[in-house]
Amino acid sequence: MPGPKKGATRRTFLAGAAVVSVLPLGAARATPEAMAAAIKEVVGDKPIREGRVTLDIPPLSENGNAVPLTVSVDSPMTEGDFIRAIHVFNEKNPQPHVLDARLGPQNGKASISTRIKLGDSQKIVAIAETSKGEFFSASADVIVTLAACVEDLT
């Protein structure tokens, strides 16, 4: 994460981990408010517009341990007009900022895929930052099926 945001975001990740080691698990849950704060950390006071971003994630996941997701952004990806970053946020995981991908005109197409963990059904938000410093977003509600039987820990 280049620029001044790097340290801040990194601290967010680490702070979450530190909290959990001293508090019961439930205390470290991200919340819609925590997600809003994490988004603000990336976006600042700039407006976030709907559109241009497509968030492809299955509406129902059979297991939250690996939920495939693809974020694509409508952009010519030229030197003068490209997508600089794609961020993904969630409401209920312990940390709201899931990933931060850095792109440029060399990518030709602003689309990334990965797999994320979701502890519960929740809202996912993808935000793209353009080379002009504008922000666009898309969101999706994901239902995560709870396992019927749990793994043997012994």
Partner: peptide, 17 residues
């Protein structure tokens, strides 16, 4: 790409170039 702990085990990533 910077990962958080919410990236799934055995991470998968794809992008274009």
């Amino acid at each position: 790409m910077d990962f958080s702990p919410a990236i799934a085990a055995n991470p998968f990533v794809s992008f274009f170039a």
